[in-house]
């Protein structure tokens, strides 16, 4: 620790310019610097409990509203899996097409909203709401290998999610070179295709 103050306080060293900025902000908000710093440290420890740094959380903040604005909603996972299980047998291909087109719409939306839409899409996949435990991206020689892992996801939902991701990637100017999907593990190899040919963007 940097130093000791009264019984319930400690002194911590910080860059002078940051302390000045914080003092100004605290004054603007009608707070003391001490209470303002307390709030900031409370949030920093909260972020740590969420296994994230403040920087990571702020980096994803701009995408937090995307699911709401882009027409996606929450539903209980078990309900979704049941509905898919009961309809996939007879409507599997149609469902795949529907998810693909939903993905294309999603990608188009991201393209309108963000300067780096594909990166935003990856951040959205990573931030937790799509039930993915891991989203790994490997870029080399103009190719992107995207690996999404979600434990205990049934094959049907994995396939539908793969179609959704593919649809989004296609609308963002990528084409599929290779794809694999097995119970919660989705692997897509994509390459950038500057001039999109919509007729080739089929499932």
């Amino acid at each position: 620790m940097s130093g000791k103050s009264s019984r319930n306080q400690k002194l911590i060293r910080a860059p002078s310019d940051l302390v000045s900025k914080l003092s100004q902000e605290a004054a603007c908000q009608g707070k003391t610097l001490y209470s303002y710093v307390t709030e900031i440290f409370e949030q920093a420890t909260r972020a740590y409990e969420m296994k994230r740094s403040l920087k990571e959380i702020l980096d994803t903040f701009e995408i937090l509203d995307v699911p709401k604005e882009a027409g996606t909603i929450y539903t209980p996972r078990d309900v979704l899996d049941y509905l898919i299980q009961k309809t996939y047998g007879e409507n599997g291909e149609e469902l795949q097409r529907m998810w693909y087109h939903a993905g294309k719409w999603y990608g188009t939306y991201l393209k309108e909203k963000f300067e780096q839409p594909f990166d935003s899409f990856l951040r959205l996949l990573r931030e937790g709401r799509w039930d993915l435990n891991e989203v790994a991206v490997n870029k080399s020689n103009g190719r992107i290998v995207l690996k999404c892992v979600s434990a205990l996801t049934p094959q049907e939902r994995s396939l539908l999610l793969q179609n959704f991701i593919e649809g989004a990637a296609h609308s963002l100017g990528y084409k599929t070179q290779e794809k694999n999907c097995f119970k919660g593990i989705i692997c897509l190899t994509l390459f950038k295709h500057e001039l999109r040919q919509p007729e080739e963007d089929s499932v």
Binding site: Q9, L11, R13, V37, F41
Partner: peptide
Amino acid sequence: RKLLAARLDLA
């Protein structure tokens, strides 16, 4: 550098 006072438990 400057010194910032922080609540003991948080610090």
